[in-house]
């Protein structure tokens, strides 16, 4: 209880340090992020054709619910989120755990190889995937040769398979990326904990579920939220996978790869530019991400 006196004299000057440490970032974010956000909120109350604007108040937000293109994009995006994110994060977690095991040989080689997909530029890897997944491309060739399938899979030609292809592509590109976060965090876990568990008779699977996952919780939460944001703002991959030169009409067959962010982009730059409505769709994205993030914070039991 005598400590109270000491710590009080410490808190004031230390609180000052807290502000000091965050000040630089705060100034930059205030100018470069806060102002644009306020401005775009204002824009979301306008309907525009380029610079020809008119005030519509909440009109744009009402229109969202009648806009079948928006609803299609929302459905597609949520599909990718629900299926792809869990697969990828679980895979990344397993790979990180294996590579953290010091008895595995060639860990450096594997680590580098698994991370490699993450270093490719988005343009490069979508070009590669498009060629590999074409009707008479490499993937179909292999699958036909080992008799897994009898006729080639229409990967990018059918609405369902196009979604599958995108999910495979995303998983290929981003699993190693998330793995490195886990790996860097696993390095911060003292080995003694695992040794103690081993002595208590916990096997690898038990160690994974009862030690690794709980200790990595902050970072799992981090990657989950980042992946949520990433998926809700998914843009480059569907854009490039579907690009058909001068005349691509839709994003994937039957607009099956149209995501919310691509829709925002189209509203700004491909269609008659309606920056007001585009801002509205953007804030719909923010709302959904925020909602999903709160759920994730709650599920993980992380006190902010």
């Amino acid at each position: 209880m005598t400590e109270k006196g000491i710590s009080r004299s410490f808190i004031k000057p230390r609180d000052k340090y807290g502000w000091l440490f965050i000040s630089l970032a705060l100034i930059l974010l205030g100018v470069l992020l806060f102002y644009p956000i306020v401005y775009s909120l204002y824009l979301s109350t306008m309907s525009s054709k380029g610079i020809v604007q008119k005030f519509v108040g909440f009109g744009n937000y009402v229109k969202l619910f009648q806009d079948s293109m928006f609803i299609l994009a929302l459905k597609n995006t949520l599909t990718f989120f629900l299926i792809q994110v869990p697969i990828m994060l679980f895979l990344a977690l397993i790979l990180a755990t294996i590579l953290n095991d010091k008895t595995i040989k060639y860990r450096g080689l594997f680590r580098t190889a698994f991370f490699l997909p993450a270093v490719t530029s988005l343009i490069a890897y979508t070009i590669l995937f498009k060629m590999m997944f074409s009707l008479d491309g490499f993937i179909n060739g292999v699958l036909l040769n080992v008799h897994i399938i009898n006729s080639p899979i229409p990967w990018l030609l059918d609405p369902f398979w196009a979604k599958v292809t995108l999910i495979i592509g995303l998983t290929w590109r981003w699993t190693g990326y998330n793995m490195i976060f886990y790996l860097s965090a696993l390095q911060n876990i003292p080995e003694e904990i695992y040794e103690a568990a081993k002595i208590d008779g916990a096997n690898k699977v038990k160690q994974f579920f009862y030690i690794t996952i709980p200790l990595l919780k902050p970072l799992i939460l981090f990657t989950a939220i980042m992946s949520t944001i990433g998926t809700l703002q998914l843009f480059d991959e569907p854009m490039n996978l579907s690009q058909g030169g001068v005349t691509s009409a839709t994003i994937g067959p039957g607009n099956s790869l149209l995501t919310l962010s691509v829709y925002v982009y189209n509203l700004c730059f491909k269609y008659m530019p309606n920056f007001g409505y585009a801002a509205t769709v953007s804030y719909a994205i923010v709302l959904i991400v925020a909602l999903l993030s709160i759920i994730q914070f709650k599920l993980m039991g992380d006190k902010k």
Binding site: L32, L33, F34, I37, V264, A279, Y283, V286, S293
Partner: peptide
């Protein structure tokens, strides 16, 4: 953290 969720496209013009 909430700011991070705003898609960049929406901020391009004011920025």
């Amino acid at each position: 953290i909430l700011f991070m969720m705003v898609p960049f496209i929406a901020l391009m013009i004011p920025l």
